[in-house]
Design a protein around this nucleic acid. Structure first.
Lengths: 173, 173
DNA sequence: TTTTAATGTAATCAG
DNA sequence: CTGATTACATTAAT
């Protein structure tokens, strides 16, 4: 099979390095020589997949996968839409950064309520929220990430204050 | 063990949601009831750290062995050092997560050069790189893992674009 | 200026 | 190992 052949070649290289780091960095070998070497790189995913041989992978997928694929497609469509609707941001806009989402206060309220109970919502809850709040699931995941970071930051700060206060109290004695 | 207990509780909640969103929003359950439920929130950084409870993880090694054991011991010492040297990050830091390594651009350049030739460097090359770049071998292994993931991701995306284009071309006919 | 959505990537964990 | 997810530092929009 093609793959195992290739990986053998690699293993060989590993054991008795044809490419030392010096060579790779071009300290020891010039580029012309490098092009002459016929070493197949081991990049399995570079090859086209022949539909059949991946079906087993898609089955065992964790909680996401089918829903994730759909999500990514939607996201992509949305990205394309952004290119066409070029009002505001036409200039402002550089290499494909998503326009900042402005959550409504109603959306924030719901998100905060959920966060209070569970700051690590799984895919199920996130998708339900997405549907209910008319947001992409990705926006929600990011929101929770940022929210956790914020909570952590505030926690850190309050701890810092407590330590400071403890020191102050010590001085008073 | 405390940590796994907590995360199991969470996973339970995720799989078979005791808290539906309706309940969380109080559409289905009033706050008094909510307070009676004894669900531990998963807020790791809130808890005090109980120094060592993660050592079992280091055992399960696979293909590597003598060098790996030595390496793991060093890593462990390093972790302990982090607990004692409590300047910066004392608060920042919860349950023994390694502080994020910031690679220098010079280090990245070398790593990328090697990656271009061989994206699956064996232990030999990794250790040489570690010595040369003044990094732990583990950092390098992780870097290659993440780098492969990145390459694969970008490859997936470009494939997606090509499929999309193919569809567009079909329409044109 | 402050807050925070978005991004990139190192670290972690399950399979 | 991969794949998914998380934490964290940074950037940039409001």
């Amino acid at each position: 099979m093609a793959i195992s052949t290739v990986s053998c070649q690699i293993r060989q290289v590993d054991a008795r390095p044809v490419f030392t780091i010096d060579r790779i960095l071009g300290l020891d070998l010039d580029r012309q020589e490098l092009r002459n070497v016929s070493l197949k790189l081991y990049r399995p995913w570079t090859e086209l997949e022949t539909t059949q041989q991946r079906s087993h992978i898609t089955v065992k997928g964790s909680s996401k996968s089918s829903s994730e694929i759909k999500r990514k497609e939607e996201e992509h469509k949305l990205k394309c839409k952004h290119f066409t609707e070029s009002h505001r941001r036409t200039l402002n806009w550089y290499i494909g950064r998503r326009p900042r989402t402005a959550f409504s206060s109603a959306q924030i309220e719901v998100l905060e309520s959920v966060f209070l109970i569970n700051s690590y919502p799984g895919i199920g809850i996130r998708e339900e929220l997405a549907q209910r709040l008319q947001l992409e699931e990705d926006r929600i995941q990011i929101w929770f990430q940022n929210r956790r970071a914020k909570l952590k930051r505030s926690h850190r700060e309050s701890q810092f204050l407590m330590v400071k206060k403890a020191f102050a109290d010590l001085k008073d004695k």
